[in-house]
Design a protein around this nucleic acid. Structure first.
Length: 280
DNA sequence: TTCGTCCTGGTA
DNA sequence: TACCAGGACGAA
């Protein structure tokens, strides 16, 4: 579910309500969420810790605590991080409840149980995030940096966009949308893109993500923000999950194929197919 | 680099 | 009943 825009929306919403608050306990409904960490140890270590700041890196949510620990949350496919009042109606698929000192609580709900919540020391965070590529909305991610990332890779450009070690934060929705905005077919070999195409795709990536944030994320079924509200970006998508519907630019029916095991949507007219590989 | 796997529920 | 799902990791 959540990609960079969804995580950014959640982090921005949580920040003013979490900073300065103190965790008063931890109720673990499904221990697997803690990635092997002992639930009792987790609760002991978290209890009494006050939130210093809330940040995002790629799709990770980082809740820094004054005691020097960091609560690290990854929502994976269906995770939700919700701010509720204590005693408020239970959320479905609740995995973790973290009560706060103001009568509210942070809840982690996750249908498919892929999401993870861990507690590490601040010193461990850099190593945890070391494998991630640059932030696509960051200042250092310019066209030259993008060209260096794409480089001589022979993989389909869609696969490159989804590789978090190369560029961190894009997922399936925004990768498809960025390729559409740039007019580039998802199966194009990365090393076949011209300088002009690279510039278009760089702009497409930033626009797709920027629109996602402006619209508070994309909700098809699972994604909700920290207050449980759906996003609005699904109303603005051009191709993602619009198979057989008309391309908003030219009217041709949107097509679907599978790239790297992921469902992929594109306009066959606006995103021309690559030349067939020469047999050699 | 690709594939299977972790999981469960919604939908065709 | 079969297929699909927004992510990431480890194995082949």
């Amino acid at each position: 579910m959540p990609e960079l825009p969804e995580v950014e929306t959640i982090v921005n919403e949580l920040r003013p309500f979490l900073v300065g608050r103190t965790f008063t306990g931890a109720k673990v409904e499904w221990p697997g969420t803690l990635a092997g960490m002992n639930p009792a140890n987790f609760a002991d270590r978290l209890t009494g810790q006050r939130v210093a700041r809330v940040a995002r890196r790629a799709k990770y949510i980082l809740i820094y605590l004054e005691g020097g620990d960091v609560l690290v949350v990854h929502l994976r496919m269906t995770g939700r991080l919700l701010l509720r009042k204590q005693g408020e109606e239970a959320d479905r698929f609740l995995r973790l409840t973290l009560p706060l000192d103001n009568g509210e609580e942070l809840r982690f709900a996750d249908l498919r149980k892929f999401g993870r919540v861990t507690l590490v020391s601040a010193e461990e965070v850099p190593a945890l995030l070391a494998k991630l590529g640059p932030e696509p909305l960051g200042d250092e991610f310019d066209v030259a940096a993008f060209a260096a990332i794409v480089g001589k890779r022979r993989a389909p450009i869609k696969t490159v966009l989804l590789n978090q070690a190369l560029l961190a934060g894009l997922g399936n929705i925004y990768a498809d949308e960025a390729l559409f905005l740039a007019g580039i077919h998802p199966l194009r070999r990365a090393d076949s893109l011209s300088a002009e195409e690279l510039a278009r795709l760089h702009a497409g990536v930033r626009k797709a993500l920027g629109d996602g944030i402006a619209n508070r994320g994309t909700t098809f079924s699972d994604y909700r923000d920290a207050r449980g509200n759906a996003g609005k970006n699904q109303e603005s998508l051009n191709v993602y999950r619009r198979t057989s519907l008309p391309c908003p630019r030219c009217g041709a029916p949107v097509e679907r194929l599978v790239v790297g095991g992921r469902s992929t949507h594109f306009c066959p007219s606006c995103q021309p197919a690559p030349e067939p590989e020469k047999a050699s």
